[in-house]
Amino acid sequence: MSLLILGDGRFPSGGHAHSGGAEAAVAAGRVRDAATLEDFCRGRLATTGLVAASLAAAAAAGHDPLVLDDAADARTPSPALRRAARRLGRQLTRAVRAVWPSPELEHLAAARPAGAHQPVVLGVAARTAGLTPRNAAQAAAYDSVSAPVTAAVRLLGLDPFQAAAVAARLAGDMEDVAAEAARHAARLPVDGVDALPAASAPLLDITAEQHAAWPVRLFAS
């Protein structure tokens, strides 16, 4: 049940204010309908989604969250995306403090007053809630898809049933990414943070910087 609570879109983690890059993609015409949304989500899941899932799995496995937070910074070239990840991490910390308080979370919050990267906080939350690294990776993979899918309903006026179908069709991909992320996390005791993937999505980085400069936008990222 803890995994369902953590992955619930109604969990007050602040994710509703972020589109996962979908707003910029819609404006550029790269996401126009359910089919192009699915392509966008699949690409995001295989790159930044895999990185986030691996960080979450590593944190859930008990690896030093401060080291993982530094690793997240190194794997996030865009300053705008780093700021967004930390804002989301700060908001998630507030929610988790109320639901699954822990000394480990308090230590992370004290060391990163501006907020730790969201996937790292997610992994610490999963560990505190008694979940496995694979569970944490599943939650992160789902988050990588659910943000743009939910945003597309507002941005495109997409039928919510079609949006839900996009997420459902990506369920297998999400499970594959979660399994791969858990394998990466399991290698950390031997290889250190170099075991974590550094898959990139340069277009997401570029458009995130452009999006951050828009004078008017619906989503924070």
Score class of each variant (00 low, 15 high):
P148N: 11
P101Y: 02
P148W: 12
L92H: 12
P103H: 10
V124W: 00
P101F: 00
S146H: 14
R97G: 08
A98S: 12
A129D: 03
N135C: 08
V99S: 07
L122N: 12
R97V: 13
T93W: 01
R134E: 00
T132F: 00
A141G: 11
L92S: 06
T150F: 14
T76D: 05
A151F: 15
A116M: 08
P113W: 09
T150M: 14
L66Q: 13
L158V: 00
R82I: 01
R112H: 15
R75Y: 01
V120A: 04
L156P: 08
L108S: 03
Y142I: 14
S102Y: 00
P133V: 01
A84E: 02
R86S: 11
R94K: 01
R127G: 03
V145S: 09
V120G: 11
G157I: 04
R127W: 01
L105R: 03
A114N: 02
A151E: 14
T150Y: 07
E104D: 10
A84R: 06
A98W: 11
Q91E: 07
A140Y: 11
A116L: 01
V121W: 04
E106I: 06
A74C: 14
S78T: 10
P77K: 15
R154L: 08
G115K: 08
A147V: 09
G115E: 04
A80R: 14
V145H: 10
A129P: 02
A84D: 11
S146F: 14
A126W: 04
R90L: 12
G130L: 02
R154P: 05
L131D: 00
A147G: 12
R97H: 11
A80L: 08
R97N: 09
A111D: 15
R87E: 10
G115N: 12
T76I: 07
T93N: 07
A147K: 13
P148L: 13
V124Q: 02
G157W: 01
S102D: 00
T128M: 02
R75S: 02
V145Q: 14
D70P: 09
R112M: 11
H117M: 09
D70M: 05
L88Q: 10
R94T: 00
V145N: 12
R82S: 05
V67T: 04
T128Y: 01
L155P: 05
A152E: 11
Q91V: 02
Q118L: 13
R112V: 11
A139S: 14
A71V: 02
L155E: 11
W100A: 11
Q138E: 10
E106A: 15
G123M: 01
A71Q: 04
Q118M: 13
V153C: 15
R82D: 02
L131E: 00
L155N: 02
R94N: 02
V149H: 14
R82K: 08
A84G: 06
R94S: 03
T76Y: 01
R90S: 08
P103T: 13
L122T: 13
A114S: 05
D143N: 06
L92T: 07
S102Q: 00
T128N: 03
A72P: 04
E106K: 08
S78Y: 05
L156H: 03
R154M: 10
Q91G: 06
L81M: 09
D69Q: 05
L108T: 04
A114T: 04
A152N: 14
A72C: 07
L81A: 09
R90N: 09
S144I: 14
Q118A: 12
E104I: 08
P113K: 12
L122D: 13
L108G: 03
